[in-house]
Simulated assay, not measured.
Amino acid sequence: MWRNIASNALTLLIVVVAALAGFIAWAKTQFTAPGPLAQAICVEVPSGSTMRGISQDLAEQGAISSERIFRIGAEYTDRSQDLKAGSFLVPETASMDEIVSIVTASGQSTCGTEIVYRIGVTESHVEVRELDPATNRFVEQAEFDPGADEAAPEIYQQVRDAEDTRYRIAIAEGATSWQIVDGLRNADFLEGDLAEVPAEGYLAPDSYEVRPGASRGELIDRMRTRQEQRLSAAWEDRADDLPYDTPEEALIMASIIEKETAVADERPQVASVFVNRLNEGIRLQTDPTVIYGITEGEGTLGRGLRRSELDAETPYNTYVIDGMPPTPIANPGQAAIEAAVNPAETDYLYFVADGSGGHAFAQTLSEHNENVARWREIEAQNADDSDGGE
């Protein structure tokens, strides 16, 4: 009798173990298989959320097929206690395993509302925008100048109080250190004083994610560190026989290149012109350096250069001085830095605007004069068009 009972118990145990193994295999397949989501969605994870609450939300939005398997999978992979507050983009057909990773990984929101403060060369403005998960594109909701006297739009005040709002500071290539500091002082979601303007050229133009209440000084330090890293890496990989001997001089050249062209593909060619001029003892003769000598980087000139300004002997007037100015004239981006240390190999000594946003390059003065004549014709035509053709 006891032998029969033991035999039956063993048989039952084997059946249970086999069934459990089958269930685990099936659940694992369900956990890692493509999910039912037909269109990307944003999932909000408030502070203090639990896997149970998130699994219910995901099920209601049609992102997962089983709340239980979602929670078991999170527990089995040791991620059930790692929920991060924020708003996260869940792509279509994302598996439960992928969704668990999305809501437990970095904690950096990838969805929802974003406040972007763009500090530019000619102007700065704040954008309030929201990600449309269906298209993965941001839709602008408001834009304003925080330095103006006008009040911020109501939607800005609303989203500032939202827990999942993301903040970014976007610095344009070619912005001066004064412009960056002035812009940061107008960012009311940052804290801390900036007692002085950092050295020109040593702040990296880039996009910086910040949190409300972040320190302005610490953000400046991040910019400075990033620029130092870029400059150091570029200098290590520099071309031979450059007409400058230090990374600091390369940064000066990069800033001039940055201010002369916004066309990425042209930067190495522009660099080659200035390098060729330095090698041949020809003055750089570049307007942006003269302008910097007048404005000292505090805003834009807002008009053309006068003859007297082109003739004035200042440390930044490269029509008068030999070589380069004493400091950078803006904060160059990485592409301009790389162009400065690895210029194109050309015989160009001149360039002028060509009317398309780029420049026409020339080896000789006669070729350059022809290009200048064409550019003046374009300018005259544009002036006629703006006057209605009269």
Rank of each mutant, 00 (worst) to 15 (best):
L242M: 12
L242P: 13
Y244K: 08
Y244C: 07
D245Q: 14
D245G: 14
T246K: 04
E248D: 15
E248W: 05
E248G: 15
L251Y: 05
I252C: 12
M253Q: 06
A254D: 06
A254V: 10
S255Q: 09
S255K: 01
I256R: 01
I257K: 09
E258A: 03
K259I: 04
E260W: 07
E260G: 08
T261L: 01
T261F: 05
T261M: 08
T261R: 07
A262Y: 01
A262H: 01
A262K: 12
V263N: 09
V263G: 03
D265Y: 02
D265M: 06
E266F: 00
E266K: 08
E266P: 03
E266C: 01
R267L: 05
R267F: 04
P268I: 09
P268R: 00
P268E: 09
P268M: 08
Q269R: 12
Q269D: 14
V270M: 13
V270D: 03
V270F: 06
V270E: 10
A271R: 06
A271Q: 10
S272T: 04
V273I: 09
V273H: 06
V273S: 05
V273A: 04
F274G: 02
F274A: 07
F274W: 04
F274P: 05
V275L: 13
N276D: 13
N276F: 12
N276V: 04
N276Y: 12
N276E: 12
R277M: 06
L278R: 04
N279Y: 00
N279F: 02
E280V: 02
G281C: 03
G281R: 13
I282E: 13
I282N: 01
I282M: 15
R283K: 15
R283A: 11
R283F: 10
R283V: 04
L284A: 05
L284H: 04
L284M: 11
T286F: 04
T286S: 15
T286N: 10
D287H: 03
D287P: 11
P288I: 00
T289Y: 07
V290K: 03
V290I: 06
V290P: 11
I291D: 08
Y292I: 03
G293H: 00
G293Q: 05
G293D: 05
G293K: 06
I294F: 13
T295W: 14
T295S: 13
G297P: 14
E298H: 15
E298D: 13
G299H: 10
G299I: 08
G299R: 13
T300E: 14
G302M: 04
G302R: 07
G302Q: 01
G302W: 12
R303I: 06
R303C: 09
R303A: 10
